[in-house]
Structures are given as C-alpha cells and as structure tokens.
Simulated scan of single mutants.
Amino acid sequence: MDNDEHLLHASSFGSAAVAYAEHRPDYAEAAVRWALEPAPGPRVLDLGAGTGKLTATLVTLGAEVIAVEPDAAMLTELRRALPGVRALPGSAEAIPLPDGSVDAVLAGNAMHWFDMAVAGPEIARVLAPGGVLAGLWNLMDDRVEWVAGLARVSGSAAVGPRDTPDSWRAETAGAHLPRTGAAPRFGSPEQVEFPHGQRRTADSLVATLATRAGVLVMPEREQEATLDRIRAFLAGGPETARGDFTLPMLTGVLRVRRL
C-alpha cells in the first residue's frame, strides 16, 4: 500500500462512525489486563481510540483513561458513549499531553495506521519511565473451518493482513515498534493471543465487515458485490444461516516497555 492509499484507508472510518460504534467488537478483558500488567501506574492513554471500544474496557478495569482520536465523527461517538472519559482531538504523531504523563499507551486496531517515525518519539515522550506500549488487534480465528471459508470469500479488503492469527503474528512482529534516532527506546516485543468472540447474526456480521477500511474505500458496485458474496456464504452455512452465533475470535496483543 503506497502512502496515498494508506492515508485514504486511515481516514475512511469517520464516514461509518455510527456503524463502527454499533458493530465493531470490544476486546478480550484478559488481553487488556495482560497489556497493562507491567505498567507502573493506572494512567492510560487510549491512542487512536475511535469510538471507544477499548476505552470502555479500560474504564471497566479501573484505569484512569484519556482517549485521543483524530477523526471528529469517531470522537463524537466516543464522547456520546463514554461522557465521563476525557476525550481529546489529536493523533499518535501529535499527542496533546505533557511529557511523562501516562503509565501506558494502548491502541486498539490502530497502531498499524501510525507513522512510527514521528509517533514513536511522541509515544516515548508521554510515557513515564518503565511505561508500557501495547497494540491490540481483534483477529478472526481461521483455525475454525467456517471462519477460514468466510475469510476466503470476503477477500483481502474485508479480511486484511492483520485480521487472522498467522498473518497478524507476521505483520506485527516488530513492524510497528517505535524507535528514536538510531537507538531503540523500547525493549523486546512480546506477542500473546487471548480467546474472544462476538455474538452476531448474518446481517450484523455483514455490517461489521462493511466497516473495514478496505470495504469503505471501494467503489459502490464493488462494495455491494463483496457484501453480497459474504451474505450468500453466511446464508449457506449451517453455523450462520439461522439466528445468533458466536464469531470465533482472538485478541492479539503486541507489548513493549519503555526503557
């Protein structure tokens, strides 16, 4: 993906902010706990917070959360859902917080959009010594046969390079870790996956996949054809054709500590 295409995908979510808030999954609580485990204190920045999917879990766990999100429409949905959370406009490349002001920086399905050449020093700046940086991604568990079939039918626009466990491990193994100058400012990365799931119907799963960046930027006819193909697959599957079902997922976490 070239830079222009990357920017187009990264900026696509605001057009679907309401659907994103309704249909995107939260994160496995055990995964969020593990991400925070080494943090020296309770102050957490949810960076690229979107509509607050990760923010809500952090609040449940008792963290002192600040959310930062660049898209105005996404930020509006976050503030509507979580009015008690301090939510600020800003980005990973320009974090509106003082030096050393948080103990952990977490990013839910967002770190791959950051320009780490700029965001890395910013994240290091706002983290207290010994602080934690963790990216979390919700993955479709394609070890389950029907989920693997769904991934094939959906195509790369709906199920991208970080959306299944094997591809996530390869894509995130050091690819998004911040460095400042020639020297790393963070320690060795750790990758762990935690079981998760989302109750869906065929219609709500189609709506979920329709909020993926690759689908949002498609020409209308191509988008309709992709979603129709997914609907047909789900209608023909015994696991998904009638009523509610659980979409088997994992929450993958990439965690490093600030040196």
Rank of each mutant, 00 (worst) to 15 (best):
D2E: 13
N3R: 14
D4M: 09
H6F: 13
S11K: 13
Y20E: 11
Y20D: 15
Y20A: 11
H23F: 15
R24W: 02
D26N: 12
Y27D: 05
A28G: 06
E29M: 08
A30K: 06
A31L: 07
R33G: 12
R33L: 14
R33M: 08
A35I: 06
P38S: 08
P40V: 04
P40I: 03
P40W: 01
G41D: 10
L45M: 03
G50M: 03
G52H: 06
L58A: 08
G62M: 00
G62I: 03
D71W: 00
T76Y: 11
T76L: 12
R80Q: 11
R80H: 12
A81V: 09
P83N: 10
P89H: 00
P89C: 02
E93P: 09
A94C: 08
I95Y: 00
D99S: 05
G100A: 04
A104E: 01
V105W: 04
N109Y: 07
A110N: 10
M111E: 14
H112L: 09
W113G: 01
M116S: 02
M116Y: 04
P121E: 07
P121C: 08
R125G: 02
V126M: 02
V132W: 02
L139Y: 07
M140Y: 13
D141Y: 01
A148Q: 05
L150G: 02
V153C: 06
S156C: 08
P161T: 04
T164C: 09
D166G: 12
D166P: 08
R169V: 12
T172K: 09
T172G: 11
T180P: 05
A182I: 09
A183H: 14
F186D: 09
G187F: 05
E190C: 10
P195H: 05
P195N: 02
H196L: 02
Q198K: 05
R200N: 12
S204V: 07
L205G: 11
T208E: 15
A213F: 07
L216M: 11
R221E: 15
R221T: 15
E224P: 02
T226Q: 13
L227F: 06
D228Q: 13
R229Q: 14
L234N: 07
L234Q: 03
L234I: 05
G236S: 12
G236R: 06
G236Y: 08
G237K: 07
P238W: 04
P238F: 03
P238K: 08
P238S: 07
T240M: 01
A241W: 04
L247K: 03
L250A: 07
G252N: 09
V253M: 01
R255A: 05
